[in-house]
Amino acid sequence: MGEGRRDRTGAIGAWLFGAAGPVEPRTIAGALGLAEEAPGLQRLREAEPLQLDRVERLHAAAQRAFERRTGEAVCRALEAAVRAGIREASAGPAGRPPGAGTGAGTGAGTAAGTGTGRLRAEADGAAQRLAADAALAGGRGLNTGLAFGIVLSPVVLVLALFAGRFLPPLFHGAIGCPEELVLMDSLVCFAGGAMGAVFSVIIRLRDAYQLIRPAPGGSEPADVPADPVQLARMMRQEGWYRVVVGWFLASSLFLLINGGILTVLTPPAAPEDMCGPVPLSAAGHQALIKAWFFWGGIGFLAGLNERWAYGLVRRGGEPRPADPPAA
């Protein structure tokens, strides 16, 4: 029972955070049980130096793959291709002695059924599978971060309500009906900021796949993607960070608008009979609903479009023009 639970926990952890790769990846020679100076491997290196170097880089990257089965499948395919290339290099082409170099360019024109042709074909396939694995790692990490931010949002809202309700009596104070209305409006704006931030990330997911491409002039070759586990970690942080940014932008706009500092947008007036002794009228209910939609929309736009929110915040921080002198 305990081992099964640990296995399930490990499987869930691998699904969320990626498979733990070896600290020191095995070389292609070690995976084949050969020494680095093995004659067959040396002949293949002389015949196809560029392709073998590319295969070795991809083999090392496959051992850091986000999904274990993807890394294992890529490693097996590359090892089989190298083994076939060693056999052909040891046999030698017709009319040429074993070990005679065919040159780096000759491998491009070799038939796909030969060992060297298979080496290149398997390297191309490995590069594509590792790129897809890195894209999967980035997408899964981003979704995990957004989910964490979404789950955290109601927790923060409940804590804010709890603080507004129970903290003032601890300091011999009380929160009245108008203050409760302002608190509720601020929390509606706060929640709208989280929703806008999540929606903003979702509509921009088409640009997230550019993260798997190495930066120009970087140390990684073009066909070896970034470390997928590190990419997933970065995208997790980016996911919940965007939700937090939505919170702060929405809260900042609420303070600026409700405090009268930013006069571009005018909040709807509170219902006149909101805090009266009689029940709230139909017009009061409509005014209350309108205020909720207003603050929720402000928060949503703040989280959705950071540039718009930053522009409003800057305008709110500008000094207000002086009133004209009275005649």
Rank of each mutant, 00 (worst) to 15 (best):
Leu152Ile: 04
Ala302Met: 04
Val201Tyr: 03
Ala215Pro: 06
Glu272Trp: 07
Ala147Val: 01
Leu146Val: 12
Glu179Thr: 00
Ala77Lys: 03
Gly246Arg: 02
Arg314Met: 08
Gly4Ile: 11
Arg5Phe: 07
Ala31Trp: 11
Ala84Gly: 07
Arg204Phe: 13
Pro178Gln: 03
Gly164Ser: 00
Pro39Met: 07
Val264Met: 04
Ala327Gly: 15
Ala302Val: 05
Val155Glu: 02
Arg43Ile: 04
Ile212Asp: 05
Val313Thr: 05
Gly316Tyr: 05
Ser200His: 09
Ala215Leu: 11
Pro154Ser: 12
Val155Ser: 02
Asp185Val: 02
Ala309Tyr: 06
Phe190Arg: 03
Val229Met: 04
Arg213Phe: 03
Leu183Asp: 00
Thr144Pro: 05
Leu187Asn: 07
Glu46Leu: 13
Val23Leu: 08
His172Thr: 01
Gly92Glu: 03
Pro214Val: 14
Lys290Gln: 08
Glu88Pro: 05
Ala269His: 12
Trp308Ser: 11
Gln230Leu: 14
Leu301Pro: 00
Arg307Ile: 03
Glu238Phe: 13
Ile12Lys: 03
Cys177Pro: 02
Ile298Gly: 05
Leu16Ala: 14
Ala147Thr: 01
Asp53Trp: 02
Pro49Gly: 06
Phe162Trp: 15
Ala14Gly: 08
Glu37Gly: 07
Ala208His: 08
Ala282His: 08
Arg118Asn: 14
Leu301Tyr: 00
Trp15Asp: 10
Ile150Met: 15
Arg315Lys: 14
Leu159Ala: 13
Ala111Val: 12
Ser251Ile: 02
Ala111Ser: 08
Gln128Lys: 08
Phe162Asp: 10
Thr102Gly: 15
Ala19Gln: 11
Thr110Lys: 12
Ala250His: 09
Ala31Tyr: 10
Arg57Trp: 04
Ala47Asn: 02
Gly176Ser: 00
Leu249Thr: 01
Ala134Cys: 15
Ala73Glu: 12
Ser186Arg: 10
Val23Pro: 10
Pro49Met: 04
Ala147Phe: 13
Ile203Asp: 09
Ala80His: 14
Leu280His: 10
Lys290Trp: 07
Leu301Trp: 12
Ile298Gln: 04
Gly95Pro: 13
Thr110Ser: 14
Asp133Thr: 01
Ala29Pro: 04
Ala62Lys: 02
Pro216Trp: 13
Pro178Arg: 01
Gly107Lys: 09
Asp124His: 15
Phe17Arg: 04
Phe199Glu: 10
Val198Thr: 15
Leu249Met: 08
Glu272Ile: 06
Ala112Gln: 03
Glu67Thr: 11
Gln230Arg: 13
Glu24Gly: 00
Phe190Leu: 09
Glu37Thr: 03
Leu187Phe: 13
Ala147Gly: 10
Glu238Ile: 06
Val224Ala: 10
Arg213Cys: 00
Gly299Leu: 12
Ile212Val: 15
Ala35Asp: 12
Ile150His: 01
Ala250Gly: 14
Pro277Phe: 09
